[in-house]
Computed example of a mutant assay.
Amino acid sequence: MIEKVKTEDLKVGMYVMLGQSWLRHSFMKPNFRITSEKQIKKIIHDGIKEVKVDTSKSEVIEERDLFRDVLGPRDEDTGQIPTQAPPPDSQTGTEIPPPEAGEFNPIDLISEELHQTIQNTSIPPQTKAKEVYDHSIRMMTNVLNDPRADNILSSKKMVYEIVDHILTDDDTAECMALITSHDYYTYTHSVNVGMLSVLLAKSVFEGSYDHNMQEMGAGFFLHDLGKCDIPHDLINKPGKLTANEWGLMRNHPQKGNTILVDTDQLTKECGLIIMQHHEREDGSGYPFGLSKDEIHPYARICSIADVYDALTSTRAYRKKVPTYKALNIMKEEMVGHFNRELFESFILMFK
Rank of each mutant, 00 (worst) to 15 (best):
R64T: 07
D262P: 01
A218P: 02
G271K: 04
P125C: 00
L248G: 06
G194F: 09
I295T: 07
E281T: 10
R250E: 10
K29R: 13
R74Y: 12
H25N: 05
P30F: 09
I273K: 02
S303A: 14
E113M: 07
L167R: 08
R24P: 00
I152H: 02
R300K: 15
L196F: 04
H278E: 08
K268C: 10
M349N: 06
F104Y: 11
G336N: 09
L327F: 10
E341L: 11
M140L: 15
T312K: 06
D89M: 07
V53F: 04
I110Y: 01
M330F: 03
Q20W: 03
T7C: 11
D108S: 07
S26T: 08
T168P: 00
M139H: 06
R24T: 09
L153D: 11
D169R: 00
V132W: 00
E113T: 05
Q116V: 02
D169M: 01
E294M: 11
H252S: 06
Q20E: 07
A218F: 05
I118L: 15
F221P: 02
N105W: 12
Y133F: 06
K240L: 11
C175R: 03
K6H: 10
E344P: 01
K255S: 09
K268E: 15
K130P: 00
D169I: 00
C228F: 15
Y187P: 01
E131N: 08
L18W: 04
S284F: 12
S284M: 13
M14W: 00
S21Y: 03
V159F: 14
I274N: 03
A85V: 08
Q254Y: 10
I2T: 09
I230Y: 05
I304Q: 02
R318P: 04
D46A: 04
T94H: 07
I304R: 03
H165C: 01
P106V: 11
V12I: 12
N257K: 14
I123V: 13
K42A: 04
E161V: 07
P99K: 03
D75A: 14
E279T: 06
P231L: 08
L248N: 05
N244T: 15
L109G: 02
L196G: 01
I61E: 10
D183Q: 09
V12N: 00
M28G: 09
D9F: 02
T168S: 12
L18E: 03
S291C: 10
E63R: 15
K156N: 15
S26Q: 07
L225I: 14
E294Q: 15
V261G: 01
M249G: 04
M275D: 04
T35M: 06
V60N: 02
I162L: 10
I235W: 05
L327Y: 08
H211P: 03
T117I: 05
D183V: 11
V143P: 01
V70L: 13
H277F: 04
T180N: 08
M176I: 13
G93N: 09
M330A: 03
T242R: 12
F27H: 03
N339Q: 11
H189G: 10
C270Y: 01
G72K: 14
L144V: 08
H135K: 13
Q20S: 05
R24E: 06
